[in-house]
Nucleic acid binder design. Structure first.
Lengths: 210, 210
DNA sequence: GGATGAATGTTGACAACGGTAACATGCAAC
DNA sequence: GTTGCATGTTACCGTTGTCAACATTCATCC
């Protein structure tokens, strides 16, 4: 019977209650929809249903919000990478290849998020340790995989840090070229293309050891 | 000898006279100085010594100006790439390696320009054919070099388009990771690092043919 | 050689943005 | 219940990209 007192339910909690999470979730949604990370903080607030100044109660500024979102992206990417390697428990070569494919696939599926994660707007300044740590963890996964391959005899005697950087560069560059529409027409079966390239890389490294 | 009539010389041509070129030149200067391409159109006008609306007499909007600047970057990069290949007239392997090094060196020396050239802000929309053509020409140089190497027996039987994409991805990714400070500490001798990686790639491809 | 029109530049306006400050509201603890 | 703190809102600031209206110069034709 509709008491006259405002119920503390869905309709309009005068204090949103969970804005921080909502803002991040909305930002993720906008990343997916607009394929661009340069949305407006005010637009974000609008979609979250709050005033344009509300976000500032939870984030110092726009960059801090974006950094957090980017860090989440790294977490998701890392998960995909680990999943890919675990699919080939005893085959370092296959692991490395699968890792690369997972990397590129993530970028192609989440282009805006990927660009945000690696873009210069957040990368160059040292003010966001959250993002820095997340990015380092991604890098570490790459290095680890190459180390395992090296231990299994791949890569010959080359410095494994350099080989790791080469592997990372290869997939990172491919991802960038693909999502920036630099490779046209964008191949329908990106997976096959990526597989071909990563396998060629591994094979080359393999052959070079002999 | 100094007629009283306003000479059409340096001091203050009430009509700047060569604004278009000046704007582009100033933009290039700001790219170099600020290491960022997101400067303000108004700031650009200020430095060029004109009012904030003057640029609109020469460019439809900011993106058009940026597209032109990016296209110039491609031209410069292509020059460096060609120069590098011509340094090794009869050695396709060395050519490919030198090309890659030139590519990365350009990126490291002109990070903001490089990011502008390949960034999504101008790449994804089809509205700037100038830039599109310039970028395609860069790509073509890459393909050409790989084709020559393939003709010389490198790469075995692999599809040369795929190998070209792999080579491009490698150097592009390395460039991106370097200028985004993803590889830390930024190695003082980037050239040695790049040389090691490109040579490893060529050697791998070479070994794979046998 | 003066009128005329196209280029080119300037001023002033607009909405939108990121960010801050002052004020309002609701929850929680004494 | 009062009181304090977290959280939300409104009002404001300076800046930006862009446009429209006005001003100035230059080339051209009678």
């Amino acid at each position: 019977m509709n008491s006259s007192k405002p119920v503390k339910q869905h309709p309009r909690p005068y204090h949103h209650g969970d804005l921080r999470r909502t803002l991040i979730a909305t930002a993720l949604k906008m990343l997916r929809q607009d394929q661009a990370w340069d949305f407006t903080l005010r637009e974000l607030a609008r979609r979250a249903g709050v005033s344009h100044a509300a976000p500032y109660r939870h984030f110092a500024d726009k960059r801090e919000l974006l950094a957090e979102v980017a860090a989440l992206g790294h977490a998701a990417l890392q998960e995909k990478m680990q999943e890919a390697t675990q699919r080939h428990p005893d085959d370092p070569k296959a692991q490395l290849s699968a890792l690369g494919q997972a990397y590129v696939a993530f970028a192609v599926e989440n282009p805006a998020h990927f660009r945000l994660m690696f873009g210069p707007e957040l990368a160059t300044d040292p003010r966001h340790p959250v993002l820095q740590k997340a990015a380092d963890a991604t890098h570490a996964l790459m290095i680890e995989a190459v180390r395992r391959s090296a231990a299994a005899g791949l890569f010959g005697t080359e410095d494994s840090r350099i080989q790791a950087l080469a592997a990372w560069s290869l997939v990172h560059g491919l991802a960038m070229l693909l999502i920036d529409n630099r490779v046209r027409p964008m191949p329908a079966d990106v997976n096959r293309l990526t597989a071909a390239i990563t396998k060629a890389f591994v094979q080359g490294a393999d052959a070079a050891t002999r």
